[in-house]
Amino acid sequence: MSFTDILLLMFGAILVENFIFSKFYGCCPFLGVSEKPDTALGMGMAVTFVMTLSGAATWAVYHFLLKPFGLEYLKTVAFILVIAALVQFIEMFLRKFIPALYASLGIYLPLITTNCAVLSAALLAIQNEYSFVSAVAFGFASALGFTLAIVVFAGVRGKMEFSKPPRAFRGFPITLIAAGLLAMAFAGFSGIRL
């Protein structure tokens, strides 16, 4: 696999097959933590950090531990454990060695274990039979796509605070409809064939 292939893979993962707007992975934090651009960016960065590392860790676990023993069917259980342990480890590491980063990302970390974007990136990398480098690049790029989506959406929600929708639409429904309109914009990228 050449370098251009990896770049194309990343471009596709960020825009064409955006995790939120075309695949719906990670919609809970997308709808829950997108009220302000700063917190959205914090969440996005924490997810990027975890997804890149978990992409590497789950690939290694699958190819060096599960596959030699014929335990491929246990990948869901194994991956969720790896991700949970990794998140816990990152939290402890950051608290001890990089307190400044911990202060800004710390509160988002526990939420990431149950963020389906992380698990689905790991599972998709196995399903598509990526090599190690592609798996890490895929995790990183998918997380960038997630960050892009959540930060853009936080900007949209900031504007929405000044509008006055009908009472039944207030809160969650109008948020979903705004997300739908953004998804329409992102659907424009689906015409790009790589």
């Binding site: 707007f21 075309s22 695949k23 719906f24 009908p166 009472r167 039944a168 639409f169 207030r170 809160g171 969650f172 429904p173 109008i174 948020t175 979903l176 409809i177 997300a179 739908g180 309109l181 998804a183 329409m184 992102f186 659907a187």
Partner: peptide, 24 residues
Amino acid sequence: LFIMPAGAFLTLGFVIAAVQKIRN
């Protein structure tokens, strides 16, 4: 459009709005 991803967000938005209307 309604089969596409955008339609999912829009439909769910309207369905939850209807539920809120009934509860209101």
